[in-house]
Every structure is written in C-alpha cells, then in structure tokens.
C-alpha cells in the first residue's frame, strides 16, 4: 500500500516538474494531476485500520478542542502519509468550519470520506470519538480523585505546553506555504483576516464569507479582465 502511494507520488512530482518546465499554469495542473493520481479510492482492511489508528491517536492528543486537530492532522495526512495535499486540506477545514458540530469531528469525517468514501468516514469518526469517550468515561468513574490530583493536572499542564508548541510549528509552516505561493492576493488576505479576527473580533463566519467573495471577485478579474493572454477555460 505504502509502496504504491509512494510510486504515485513520485509520478506526480515528475508531472509537476514537467509542467513547471513547460511554464504552464502550475496551480491548475497540479490540482488536476492530484485528482487523477488519487482518484482511485483506497481499500483493504489494513488501510482502514491505519485510518482508524491515525484519527484515534490524533484525537487522543487534541486538548482544548477546536482547531488544534487541524495542524496535527495536516502533519499526519499531508506530510507523513501524503494522503491529501496541502490545498485540499485547507479546503476541507473550510468545509468543516461551515457545518455545525465540533471541527475535529467534521474534519475527520471529511478526511475519511476523501480517502475511502462513506466507510472511510465511519472509521475516522469512530476513531475520533473513541478517545474522549473512553477518557471521560474513566474520569467519570474516578471523578472525585481526579479533581483533587495535582500529579494528573501537572502532566496535563506539561502536555498542553507541548501541544501549543506543535500548533505554533504547524501554523508557521502553513503561513510560509501561503507566502511561498508568491501571490500578493493570498498573502494580503491572510494578513488582513488575521488582523481582523485578532484586533477587531470579527466573526469567523463573516471572515470566511468575505474571503470567499473576494476570491471569487479576484478570479473573475483574472479571468475576464485579462482574457487575451491566458489559455481560456481551464476547468
């Protein structure tokens, strides 16, 4: 399984390099080749178990909830296993954010669905939900002892410092990726939306909505404003 994925990935790199040499629209071709390379959905018990275990361990370390799982999942799914590419991962997070429910659960469902359809989604959802379910069930039984234990809380405090470092590391990588696109539009959007949520407490939903519309407008401007020098429709 790993071998095939690696082989496909190497092929993908070759295609990308070829395209770069030809000087065509790198981004579109890149997402196209990804779709071809990864279209074949994965199957087999071993893969499903791997999927389950990957989400299980991710969820077991998702302290504080919310977005914490995203950088961790990116590390595992994008960098380690190369199951999903960076852009698609960010798309999945945007989708997860626009549906109700915990983001950790939503992102896992999406990743599982992406890799192995509905059965994949079932495995990742069980993988994500099990650790908190087991841990809270145990905590409930030892509720009083747990509340008093300063040893337990010092382990958790140490861990949350570690988690914070991992998250910062991942955020730096993601931000560098966006800057590395050398697109003024993307970089500005990132900086401005960051300032918006940090300094002006703008609602997350509103930020996503405005950015989606700006992206649409930017695309329309590129597409219709400079039609003469491009290669037309690239859908």
């Amino acid at each position: 399984m790993e071998g095939t994925v690696a082989k496909l990935y190497r092929k993908y790199i070759m295609v990308v390099n070829y395209v770069k040499k030809e000087g065509q629209n790198n981004l579109t071709i890149k997402s196209l080749t990804w779709r071809i390379v990864l279209k074949k959905k994965k199957s087999g018990i071993q893969f499903f178990l791997q999927l389950f275990w990957a989400t299980f361990t991710l969820s077991a370390f998702t302290f504080g909830g919310g977005y914490v799982i995203v950088p961790l999942m990116r590390e595992k799914f994008v960098e380690k296993y190369k199951w999903i590419d960076e852009e698609e991962m960010l798309d999945l997070v945007a989708i997860a954010q626009s549906a109700p429910g915990p983001i950790a659960v939503n992102t896992s469902i999406l990743a599982g669905y992406r890799l192995a359809g509905i059965p994949g989604a079932l495995f990742t959802i069980v993988g994500t939900v099990s650790p908190p379910l087991i841990i809270i069930a145990i905590v409930f039984v030892f509720y009083d002892a747990f509340k008093e234990s300063s040893a337990v809380s010092s382990v958790l405090r140490g861990m949350s410092a570690g988690v914070a470092a991992v998250v910062v590391d991942a955020v730096v990588k993601m931000a560098l990726n966006v800057v590395g696109e050398k697109s003024v539009f993307s970089t500005c959007l990132m900086v401005l939306s960051f300032i918006g949520v940090l300094f002006f407490n703008i609602d997350v939903k509103l930020v996503l909505l405005v950015c989606a519309l700006l992206g649409l407008a930017y695309y329309a401007w590129l597409h219709f404003g400079k039609r003469d020098n491009s290669n037309g429709g690239n859908a």
């Binding site: 977005y67 995203v70 950088p71 852009e87 960010l90 798309d91 997070v93 945007a94 954010q97 991942a170 955020v171 993601m174 931000a175 966006v178 993307s186 970089t187 959007l189 990132m190 900086v191 939306s193 960051f194 949520v197 997350v204 930020v207 996503l208 950015c211 989606a212 519309l213 700006l214 992206g215 649409l216 930017y218």
Partner: peptide, 10 residues
C-alpha cells in the same frame, strides 16, 4: 480566497 483565511483562523 478561503485558503489564506483558514490559515489565519488557525
């Protein structure tokens, strides 16, 4: 448009 926004939200 959404990708850079998601990075800054994270």
């Amino acid at each position: 448009g959404l990708r850079p926004a998601v990075v800054s939200l994270i």
